[in-house]
Design a binder for these strands. Structure first.
Lengths: 343, 343
DNA sequence: GTGAAAGCGCTAACAG
DNA sequence: CTGTTAGCGCTTTCAC
């Protein structure tokens, strides 16, 4: 079942390959009659252009690499969806790699993608500094990288898609305070992630403003999984830190925490309210559903895709930062603003 | 930042490109001295082979297409992981497409993948019959397709990776019976999916054997999302069908059902036990955790990858069916076998 | 042990 | 309007 090439058409129609090519590309320099014949023959013989040939010719692979920490939660899938919406219609393919939150695996993935000859890389990093050199080298070698969600420090100038972690975190905390909570715990992720710091800063700022900040209420986790959320709560309980609510860095941590509380018979939100930050379905598939900051993940993906296209078109195009807006969505895991302390 | 090619090395070392190529490929017909020089120069100039050139030469794209119904749940991500474990080291890339359980989108994805010139397709179909012709055509045109999880009917002979839906479903139901449940409801997915029928058959067989089968206890859902699980339970409640347990086709349906029950104040497992079929983390991130049949998703992915490699190597290789073993894992959403009706 | 040349499929100068 | 030719990067005969 051999592939039909432009050559086959050329033989079949007794025309040169260039004419065929022109007809296929809607070049004006071709007799409409001829073009019609070519198109018909192409249809009949089942001609499909071979993208590989073009890739070779133009030095592009039409492959974009995606590096994400994990695909267990729908976070990355949603972003991927947005990326695909932009890139698939343009003939790009997306190669996905997962780093499992391990910077070493992330590094390997980046190398793999470079070997795969991708035209650009979109990445949600798993460690703020560990692979900074690698990013820099790859960019210098000519493969543009665009960051989203978790971005590198100021020493690395890049295009990126972000949300306002600090502000939104503070809104969540304000909300908890508005519903009468005062002992608000914060489950941070590992501090090797920039956003962890940002969200924690938002949290601290508000608690300080209200004179209810207490360092004991902050727990830093080792990882980002459900288990880590659970362990964080355990730690609070072990240390006998009293808390009436939790603001968690992510859905995942929040759910881990919440399930452990539920298993201990704690009532949510009556005894402990829980709020998080994310934008995935996870927030709505648990009971009670989670109050959280919803990020426009699909749009973030599309934005990242647009940014990488810019860079592919012109490597020296200026770096852009796209700040996405987010919504704080109130759900059953916290009291609603108006019905403070009501069932 | 231009790519370093074999030509650059050739100029740099004043050797022919063929010698360079041979040295790089460890061909015996090359002076060890020369080879050493070449390797050093390659390292120094940062030479990376251009896979596109080979793809063109050998008529392969080294791209494998993956078609899945969704990536919201970790199901497909897990399978993807297994696929990647096999294919990435071999230089294959995996292009992912989601059909959103819509056979029309699935069709478009298949066409897209064919245009992308993939060497093979791995698919978890979303409708048993709708695209049967399409699969057949693609295979006839020379692109092998391997199925996993949801497979086509007998009229289409293909390689596939499956689990024993019928048997395992019956084990789940037996378990519910062993824990004292008698009014066991079944939330099926849409009957356009083969496995839905298989699992339902397992369910029916056991209930019939125990003389407790009742058609009213079966609810067929429209889709596969959390919402569908919720609606199924609503339907049962509306029809005032009494039930003391639920066996759901998937985690997703089970969780939708469970959360609705919880929101109605129903105690799980005391009043209603819930069990499902899957193998994703979802079963363990809800409270109570779900008893379910755990499929070895990563292994299933690897197996599918092996099958597609077989077919790529030799299109006419015989179709193989790989039957994977599964584990019934008991969790808090049902009583444990021994402590029947105990907390 | 090494070099020259062809060719994978396609497009784009360059002729005519 | 159409044909000829070169070339993208690489491997692989075929000569030497």
């Amino acid at each position: 079942m051999k592939r039909v090439t432009i050559k086959d058409l050329s033989k079949f129609l007794s025309l040169s390959t260039s004419t065929i090519s022109r007809a296929l590309l809607n070049d004006k320099n071709v007799n409409p009659e001829t073009q019609k014949k070519v198109l018909e023959a192409a249809e009949k013989l089942g001609y499909k252009p071979n993208p590989t040939a073009l890739n070779l010719k133009y030095g592009e692979s039409k492959n974009i690499g995606l590096v994400v920490p994990e695909m267990i939660t729908p976070f990355s899938s949603k972003v991927l969806q947005g990326i695909q919406e932009i890139l698939y219609p343009l003939g790009y393919r997306v190669i996905i790699t997962q780093s499992d939150e391990d910077p070493l695996i992330e590094r390997k993935n980046l190398q793999l993608l470079e070997e795969f000859n991708v035209d650009g890389i979109i990445i949600n990093m798993c460690h703020e500094t560990y692979n900074e050199e690698i990013y820099k080298n790859i960019i210098e070698r000519g493969t543009p990288i665009v960051f989203f969600d978790r971005i590198p420090g100021k020493s690395l100038e890049v295009s990126k898609v972000i949300v306002d972690d600090n502000i939104k975190a503070s809104l969540v905390v304000e909300h908890l305070i508005n519903t009468g909570k005062r002992k608000i715990a914060h489950i941070m992720g590992p501090t090797t992630i920039r956003n962890v710091i940002e969200r924690a800063n938002g949290y601290k700022r508000i608690l300080t403003k209200h004179h209810i900040f207490n360092q004991d209420l902050i727990v830093e986790t080792e990882g980002m999984m459900f288990e880590d959320g659970k362990n964080a709560v355990k730690k609070l309980l072990d240390k006998r830190v009293e808390f009436d609510s939790i603001f968690a860095f992510s859905d995942t941590l929040a759910i881990g925490a919440m399930n452990y509380l539920l298993s201990q018979g704690v009532k949510i939100p009556e005894e402990v309210s829980v709020a998080s930050f994310s934008g995935t379905e996870l927030a709505t598939i648990v009971h009670p559903q989670l109050t959280s900051v919803e990020q426009p993940l699909i749009k973030m993906g599309s934005a990242a895709a647009e940014l990488i296209l810019e860079k592919i078109k012109d490597v020296s195009s200026p770096n852009r930062t796209i700040l996405m807006d987010t919504d704080l969505v109130y759900r059953a895991s916290t009291f609603s603003k108006t019905n403070k302390k009501q069932e």
